[in-house]
Amino acid sequence: MIEKLEQHYGYLFEDDLIKEIAEVAIYKEFKANSTIIDIDSYLVSIPLIISGAIKVLREDKDGDDLVLYYIEKGDTCAMTLSCCMGATKSKIKAIAETDVTVLMIPKGKMSEWLSKYKSWQEYILQSYHSRLNEFIEAVDSIAFLNMNERLHKYLKDKAMVIGDDTLNVTHLQIANDLHTSRVVISRLLKALEKQSKIELHRNQIKILEL
């Protein structure tokens, strides 16, 4: 485990912190599309992502989801940190976008390390800053972009997160992530294809403009 930590977090954390993480962390693997955190769950640990990507969603009163942002290798989730610190129920859902490996850190260690390690303090503050910026970007996207622009941005973001310009995704899955209907997504995808921004294949979309 120390080798994985040094590889992915060695440039961020002191050697002593790396050793402590290795002692207390629980290594977990999640398959793509599996739920990692659910709405209204109490969280007892925070994730450090070793590999893969996770999408963070908000659920409305009807049970429909809206993608807020993605977290990737080297990241943690600011919403998880807030829930752990406040001992409150989760307001978000986290789904594995790809196969994911994470190290789960007991929440008690988070506050202890904030005063003990400057690198951990900087990491947590940077995580809050990054997630806040992404959340603002998500709000701006909903408020100021039309659905065609939102869809194109969603496809490009998804491609960058998984590191592949070909997405294996259905129109219904996209519609659920963007909180709209499959019919609307299918129509807009065809429009993007006519603009030579994407290529449509059966359950696959190739992004031509990244």
Score class of each variant (00 low, 15 high):
residue 113 W to T: 03
residue 75 D to K: 08
residue 133 N to Q: 02
residue 120 W to Q: 00
residue 50 I to S: 03
residue 135 F to S: 01
residue 104 M to C: 14
residue 183 V to L: 04
residue 121 Q to F: 13
residue 44 V to D: 13
residue 141 S to A: 06
residue 209 E to I: 12
residue 114 L to F: 05
residue 12 L to F: 14
residue 203 N to T: 11
residue 131 R to K: 12
residue 9 Y to S: 02
residue 137 E to H: 03
residue 94 A to N: 07
residue 163 G to M: 08
residue 206 K to Y: 13
residue 179 H to I: 00
residue 30 F to V: 05
residue 110 M to L: 13
residue 181 S to Y: 01
residue 29 E to S: 10
residue 13 F to E: 03
residue 8 H to E: 08
residue 174 I to K: 08
residue 42 Y to T: 14
residue 168 N to A: 08
residue 34 S to M: 00
residue 130 S to R: 09
residue 6 E to F: 02
residue 169 V to E: 03
residue 78 A to M: 05
residue 178 L to M: 06
residue 1 M to S: 11
residue 194 K to Y: 04
residue 50 I to D: 04
residue 21 I to H: 01
residue 157 D to Q: 11
residue 186 S to M: 10
residue 60 D to F: 03
residue 170 T to I: 09
residue 203 N to G: 09
residue 21 I to S: 00
residue 59 E to I: 15
residue 8 H to A: 08
residue 106 P to E: 11
residue 128 Y to K: 01
residue 75 D to H: 10
residue 125 L to V: 07
residue 115 S to F: 10
residue 133 N to K: 10
residue 60 D to M: 04
residue 8 H to L: 07
residue 65 D to V: 15
residue 103 L to K: 05
residue 105 I to K: 07
residue 132 L to E: 08
residue 35 T to K: 08
residue 4 K to F: 01
residue 82 S to K: 11
residue 74 G to H: 03
residue 76 T to R: 01
residue 40 D to Q: 12
residue 38 D to M: 00
residue 45 S to K: 02
residue 98 T to Y: 03
